[in-house]
Design a protein around this nucleic acid. Structure first.
Lengths: 258, 258
DNA sequence: CGCTCGTTTGATATATTTCAAGAATTGTGG
DNA sequence: CCACAATTCTTGAAATATATCAAACGAGCG
């Protein structure tokens, strides 16, 4: 296992293992996946809309995001990705991309041929189930974003996004959920929560002066998690982080009383 | 095949077949799935949030929708479902529901045990792939809804929703995309596009007086498809309707020039 | 025929956007 | 390591799309 953790694809194995119990053989098969490593600079595109995708990228380090453009040229971000996430299962399996994926920060990805993904998914049912779960949970997060953007006011939206990011970060073992570096600008935050950059700034400032977050540079500290979660109407259930499996965060402690 | 089309699960087979080529055996396996038929009245819940789901429901007739509630009691609809759709793959596979599914109209569902779904998915890779695609396309539609709600103005949002519904209806062989009965009230429409019922009414009226739609009762006629698609900023690509397979709509004709 | 649910309409309120410009931080080349 | 350029952040004032409140109207149903 200590050997596994050194492997380039270890983050993928870790993530898949969080959705579904994998045995020795499953793990070996995941690590035996053919891949090519690529280092990408910040803001590099990983997938283009309408592109015919033949590969699936796994994010090994850094952050990335999905986005799409509406008619008037207005952009909407639809998800943020971090270590261990598959960046384009959808695009590669469906054949053509319906959105863009771009690096948020510089980072490293493993590029895996689609066919290898298909093969492992059906050759190793546990791995297949884990991948399926990955796409299902992504769907769940999309639904929560629809709710967030559709029904919550500006401050709540932003607080919610911060909470979600914090929990996911901790799940990916990238830091504490109470203190972390936000890898996005306020303009990008605005695209994520469907607000104006100007308004995002004001709300952030408002969360700050209310003592709900402390900002230094691009660093966020959350002095009182439950208070922020309450303001953000945040209930981590939709993230489906497994509460039983050992190597994952105990999300129960993050649930704020209704 | 004519025999197959009489089978209760025929709508499911049809839908799956639209994502992935299925051979005789795959088809036989799908139709051999164990199930129980249930007739549900309008507004009956199919899945409750937080419920521990052990079954997957396939919609055989009527319409259903997914929704979720935010803190203040404000509801958001996240998808509309019709004949052939799987209503809770996510909930049953992930173990616990993160949202509600409710009937829009009266209708009939086939209730299938989760284990049977898992078995067929990995025992028949083509079927598994088709189901996976189904969840991926659902994800794509969620992303489009995020874009719709997040970046488009009121009229555009509504026009977009009408276009999407029209195309999906035709794909499910439930009618012509230029004329159909909308199975939802304006209040529900409002929950789908994140607007006030009052405002939805005004926008609908405005589309009407602009000649973009004609309403009689709950019936919608679209005199000029391309005009409405343009107003709705609608590009069906994200629906991933296969343009090659015979038994599906040719979506190319629905794309409006950029 | 009366009742309930859905639709329509008007007047007013407000959260968020838009426009615009200045301050601060980050990055870069000499 | 400094100076300059380029982002990113901050702040204010005015504009607006959509929400809210409230009430009447119409249609389907028992």
């Amino acid at each position: 296992m200590s050997q596994n953790s050194q492997h380039s694809l270890a983050p993928l194995l870790r993530k898949l293992g969080s959705w579904q119990e994998l045995d020795e053989r499953d793990a070996a098969a995941v690590l035996a996946l053919p891949f090519v490593i690529r280092d990408l600079p910040a803001s590099q595109f990983v997938v283009w809309e309408q592109e015919r995708a033949q590969h699936c990228c796994v994010l090994l380090s850094g952050f990335a995001y999905r986005h799409k453009e509406a008619g008037g040229g207005r952009r909407q971000m639809m998800s943020i990705h971090m270590k261990g996430d598959c960046l384009d299962l959808q695009n590669s399996l469906l054949g053509s991309a319906d959105h863009n994926v771009q690096m948020l920060s510089a980072g490293r990805v493993a590029v895996i041929p689609v066919q290898a993904i298909r093969d492992i998914a059906f050759g190793h049912p546990n791995v297949g189930m884990a991948m399926w779960c990955e796409t299902l949970v992504e769907g769940s997060i999309f639904r929560e974003w629809i709710l967030n953007i559709g029904q919550r006011d500006a401050i709540t939206r932003i607080a919610h996004l911060l909470c979600e990011f914090a929990v996911r970060l901790e799940c990916a073992e990238l830091g504490k959920h109470t203190n972390f570096a936000l890898p996005i600008t306020q303009d990008q935050l605005a695209e994520a929560v469907s607000l104006t950059p100007v308004h995002v700034n004001r709300m952030l400032r408002s969360l700050d002066s209310a003592g709900l977050i402390v900002r230094t540079r691009r660093n966020i500290t959350i002095p009182d998690w439950h208070a922020l979660a309450k303001v953000g109407d945040f209930h981590p259930h939709y993230l489906h982080v497994n509460q039983d499996r050992e190597n994952t965060v105990t999300v129960k402690s993050l649930v704020h009383p209704a």
